[in-house]
Write a protein that binds this DNA or RNA. Structure first.
Lengths: 335, 335
DNA sequence: ATAAAAACAGAAATCGATATCAAATTATAA
DNA sequence: TTATAATTTGATATCGATTTCTGTTTTTAT
């Protein structure tokens, strides 16, 4: 039988209340009493039961994190940032791998409703803005990474996609490219849309007219990127650079060009987004847009916990972080 | 104010006990009553409070997972296996990133002691066998992945390192290699030791005498592997194949050879362990030993949960899984 | 028709902590 | 030396479910 607070209080000759106070660093207890109690706690090896504490205090010091897939390196980096920040603030995290199923994602939200967790972080969620807002409006603490939802109750940490795309296009144009293909991700992903918009805008800024035939969809997968290139070539489109909305697709692009015996970067430049590990190991090394994933996770966590504890007054709950263009061999060539 | 079980029972005209029975699928409730209660629950959108349930039932349906580093792909794969299996058995997982600090690892064990979790899975833990056994003997449920601890109370899922190493050496010998260098991981890691032992044994089986100068330590990191090769070459050792105890070090080996302008696999064969993603993207593609990481995580989880619920009688609690040698370009060459 | 067994339902205790409120003690001020 | 304030302590209610134990009703067997 493990010790309970009563056992401690009995042995220390004080009330459970006092023991509780000592445990929680209340200043409403005399220094001498405190020492005595601490000594007894030490002696008995007493450890307070978390469930009892959670029930009474209506907090679990736990936050949930829903990701589409733990293995996607973008998610893993973010999770690491979340975990480390949470840990440093004495929080724990429950990981929910939605396995790309919206249904599972919705299932996991139950952790919020049944008070297993104090708040939930959604990483590139498949839920709609409206769905997320509804959760927040019911009084639950939600944060979203990778998207900007315009609502007072939803904390967001997202990327300045526009600026990143701008940089990419400027860089390509600077290297002499005028026909730039764009491989977007899933049609309905917010990121895809934003990047496409940014793409069009960036072209305009460089006085290049937008050609819709140079845009295709690669659903964020390696094979999807491969297929997209194949389709464009089949349609007879010509281009000297490819900007893929993520690195996975860019790798698929590599495969396609290898098959077609088209040289990167001499004949075509390729740039991806995410800076996954493989980028630096493929040949030629892949230029990419790096997002501060770890920091995004950490920042989101910090802000969400602030929000949960209403610690600080924050006028805004959305935070835009910026990306960095990493120019590597795959695009570092003037045509 | 959210609804409590009392609210439901009042509205349904039954006792809280009955509602609880319905919630927990007890057969001690009449079909008609059950339907009525379910309807009220539905109407009120009642969701039982997890903390209360945990406290009373002395279970949290949560297991903890301590890893040295979430980002290491070996760990990430295992975590995915754990999460998915846990989820399918209605368990949740709390992820603990020990950031390679033993101190943190010990800290996280508190989740076990304060009953935040029902069991803990240690992935390549830095704790000693004795330390782990002690935890188990105190009545806590612990499982270990990547190591075999000989104790009734500790569940283990580990790799048949000996067999894997054997296969690697056989493969190399078959390709004409006689001077094989071995780069081990951290000196005190169990895996390293086992692999080294297996290495020596495998050489003997192939009638090759063991040369201690062809063994060096690379501490599992890319740069460590690089340094190890540099040291061997500096010492004037000659060899035609390198077996690194993990892929990271093998990548370092690649760097060293590139620098020295030594061709893989023509002049030297290289084989790693882990099958990280990069293996298939480097040039030449890296041969490696693949462990069924996802399955190991899933298996461990299944067994640990069995153990926690004393569901099944299991004569043994240790499970040895076997690896597969993936022969790729880096070693697929007869000298 | 009656005894025994099975099925169903609820009252009250309980899990183990914290919160609330009231009281006792000590310190300070007038 | 009181009156008052500040400090310290504890009794008790409470968080919200499940468990235990008891009682009632229904079914089955004889």
């Amino acid at each position: 039988m493990t010790n309970k607070i009563k056992d401690v209080s009995a042995k220390a000759g004080v009330s459970p209340t006092t023991v509780s106070r000592v445990l929680n660093n209340s200043k409403l207890v005399n220094e001498k009493t405190k020492r005595k109690v601490l000594q007894v706690i030490e002696e008995m090896g007493y450890i307070p039961n978390a469930s009892a504490k959670n029930l009474r205090s209506k907090k679990t010091m736990t936050i949930g994190v829903i990701v589409t897939d733990i293995l996607v390196s973008y998610n893993a980096d973010i999770i690491k940032g979340i975990e480390n920040m949470a840990n440093s603030l004495n929080y724990k995290i429950i990981i929910c791998d939605a396995q790309d199923q919206k249904e599972k994602e919705i299932d996991y939200l139950n952790l919020l409703y049944n008070r297993t967790i104090d708040g939930m972080i959604l990483v590139t969620s498949t839920l709609s803005d409206q769905e997320i807002i509804k959760i927040a409006e019911q009084g639950y603490n939600v944060g979203v990474i990778g998207r900007n939802i315009d609502h007072d109750l939803v904390s967001c940490v997202y990327n300045d996609n526009g600026k990143a795309v701008q940089e990419v296009i400027d860089h390509l144009v600077e290297n002499g490219h005028k026909e730039i293909a764009f491989i977007s991700g899933l049609k309905d992903a917010v990121d895809s849309y934003e990047r496409l918009e940014g793409f069009i805008y960036a072209l305009k800024r460089n006085n290049i007219s937008f050609n819709p035939d140079l845009v295709d969809n690669g659903d964020f997968s390696e094979y999807g990127g491969y297929q997209a290139i194949k389709r464009m070539i089949a349609k007879g489109q010509s281009f000297t650079a490819v900007f893929a909305a993520n690195d996975e697709m860019a790798l698929g692009v590599y495969n396609a060009f290898k098959e077609l015996d088209i040289k990167i970067p001499e004949q075509v430049a390729v740039i991806g987004v995410d800076n996954i590990r493989v980028c630096s190991y493929v040949s030629p090394r892949l230029s990419t847009v790096a997002q501060p994933k770890y920091s995004m996770g950490a920042l989101m966590t910090e802000k969400l916990i602030d929000q949960m504890n209403e610690n600080k007054y924050t006028s805004s709950r959305t935070f835009k972080v910026s990306s960095t263009l990493l120019i590597r061999e795959s695009s570092d060539y003037k045509i």
